[in-house]
C-alpha cells in the first residue's frame, strides 16, 4: 500500500494505483473525457491534470501512479483555468447542437460545458466539417462531434481485438476512422458506441426515439447465445428504443451486434398476435378460448385412444426456466409422459 495526500486528505491505495483512481477512492472527482477503467490510460484529454508537490508541471492523474508521500492537488485556480481552456477549445470545434443531439443528457462534454459555464467562446474559429458517408445500418458516426478521446480506438483494439478504427491525418485535421474510411473490419459490436463520451457515435436505430426523458430502463438478459449478457432495455411508450448494458455484470458492459442492435424483432409486424387454428387446410385467426378448448379436447382424445406416450412435447432453450419447468411438468403430470425434450443438441 502507498500513502499519499490528495487535496489534504490522506489516501491509502495499493501500489500501482493511478492518482486518478486514488482520488476517486476518496470521493474526489476529477474530470476526464478519455479515461475508461477497462482501457489502457491514454492521457489525451488532459482534463485530469493535477499538481504534485515538487513536480514543476501538472501531470495527468490517469497515467501517473500514486507514490508514497505524494502531495497531490486536484483543484487550484491554475488547474481550473487550464481545464476551462481545454473545454473551451473543444467547444470551439464542436457543433454544439445539444438541442437535437441523441446523446444530450448523457454527454460528458455537455456536462463539462455546464460545470464550467461556457457560453461565449474566446477561441471561436474554424470547425471541422465532415459529410457522413458510412452506410452501415448500426453505427451513426457524426465525426464533427468527435473529440478524439481515442476510447473507440482502444476498445476496438484492446477489448474487441479488431482494430477497425484508428487515428488518421494530423493536426487539426486529425480524425478517427477505419482504414480508407470504409467499414472494412468492423464487427458492429457497438463497443465504441458504448464508450463514446459525446454524440459522435450513436446507434442509427436510436434516432429520434427518445433520449433521457420518459425512459424506463429495464435490466434483463440477452435472448441470443449462451453467454448470458445483461441487457438494459430503454423503454418509451411500451417500445424498446435502445439497448445498453451495465458495466458491473458478467459481460462487463460489452455486447455483440445481436445484443446491441438485435432488438428489432420485438416490435416486428410479423409477431403473432392472435391464436390461429387450421380450418379447411388454412390457418385462421381464432380466440384463445376456442384454441385452448381445441387443444385440450383433442389432446385428451389422443391420450385416451393411444395412451399418453403418443403425445410429445418440445420445450425451448429460448424460454425461461419457469416456463420450461411448467412445460415439462405439464407433459409429465398432466399428459403423463416423459416424451419431453428440447433442442440442446442443435
Amino acid at each position: 500500500m502507498v500513502n499519499l495526500t490528495i487535496d489534504g486528505i490522506t489516501v491509502s491505495v495499493p501500489e500501482g494505483t493511478t492518482i486518478l483512481d486514488a482520488a476517486r477512492s476518496a470521493d474526489i472527482s476529477v474530470p476526464t473525457l478519455c479515461h475508461h477503467p477497462k482501457l489502457t490510460p491514454f492521457g489525451g484529454c488532459r482534463l485530469c491534470i493535477v499538481n504534485i508537490k515538487g513536480v514543476p508541471r501538472p501531470v495527468t492523474s490517469c497515467t501517473t501512479p500514486a507514490e508514497d508521500g505524494m502531495e497531490v492537488t486536484t483543484r487550484s485556480s491554475t488547474l481550473e483555468r487550464l481545464r476551462r481552456t481545454l473545454v473551451e477549445l473543444l467547444l470551439s470545434d464542436h457543433p454544439n447542437d445539444c438541442m437535437v443531439c441523441e446523446q444530450a443528457g448523457n454527454c460528458t462534454l455537455q456536462e463539462l460545458a455546464y460545470f464550467y459555464g461556457i457560453r461565449e467562446n474566446r477561441f471561436a474559429g474554424e470547425r471541422r466539417v465532415y459529410t457522413k458517408t458510412d452506410n452501415n445500418p448500426f453505427l451513426e458516426r457524426d465525426m464533427e462531434k468527435c473529440i478524439l478521446c481515442g476510447k473507440c480506438v482502444r476498445v476496438c483494439d484492446e477489448i474487441q481485438g479488431v482494430g477497425a478504427v484508428d487515428f488518421t491525418y494530423r493536426g487539426f485535421s486529425a480524425k478517427i476512422c477505419p482504414p480508407f474510411e470504409k467499414d472494412l473490419e468492423c464487427e458492429f459490436c457497438g463497443q465504441c458506441v458504448t464508450v463514446c463520451p459525446t454524440g459522435a457515435l450513436t446507434g442509427k436505430m436510436w434516432r429520434q426515439k427518445g433520449r433521457q426523458q420518459g425512459i424506463r430502463k429495464v435490466h434483463t438478459v440477452c435472448p441470443y447465445c449462451g453467454c448470458g449478457c445483461n441487457l438494459t432495455l430503454h423503454v418509451r411508450d411500451n417500445e424498446v428504443i435502445r439497448v445498453s448494458s451495465r458495466e458491473d455484470t458478467i459481460n462487463e458492459g460489452w455486447l455483440c451486434p445481436k445484443g446491441s442492435f438485435g432488438y428489432g424483432f420485438i416490435a416486428n409486424s410479423d409477431r403473432l398476435t392472435k391464436p390461429l387454428i387450421r380450418e379447411k387446410g388454412k390457418l385462421r385467426e381464432t380466440t384463445w378460448e376456442k384454441a385452448l378448448e381445441y387443444i385440450a379436447s383433442n389432446s385428451l382424445k389422443i391420450k385416451e385412444n393411444y395412451g399418453p406416450d403418443a403425445i410429445g412435447g418440445l420445450a425451448s432453450a429460448r424460454c425461461s426456466n419457469e416456463e420450461n419447468y411448467v412445460f415439462q411438468k405439464f407433459m409429465r403430470a398432466v399428459i403423463g409422459t416423459n416424451n419431453v425434450d428440447h433442442c440442446a443438441r442443435l
Binding site: 438478459v221 440477452c222 435472448p223 441470443y224 447465445c225 449462451g226 448470458g228 420445450a315 425451448s316 432453450a317 429460448r318 424460454c319 425461461s320 426456466n321 420450461n324 419447468y325 415439462q328 419431453v340 428440447h342 433442442c343 440442446a344
Partner: peptide
C-alpha cells in the same frame, strides 16, 4: 442458446 442450460436443468 440463451437458456439451453436452463431447459436441461429444468428437466
Amino acid at each position: 442458446q440463451n437458456n439451453v442450460q436452463g431447459a436441461t436443468d429444468m428437466g
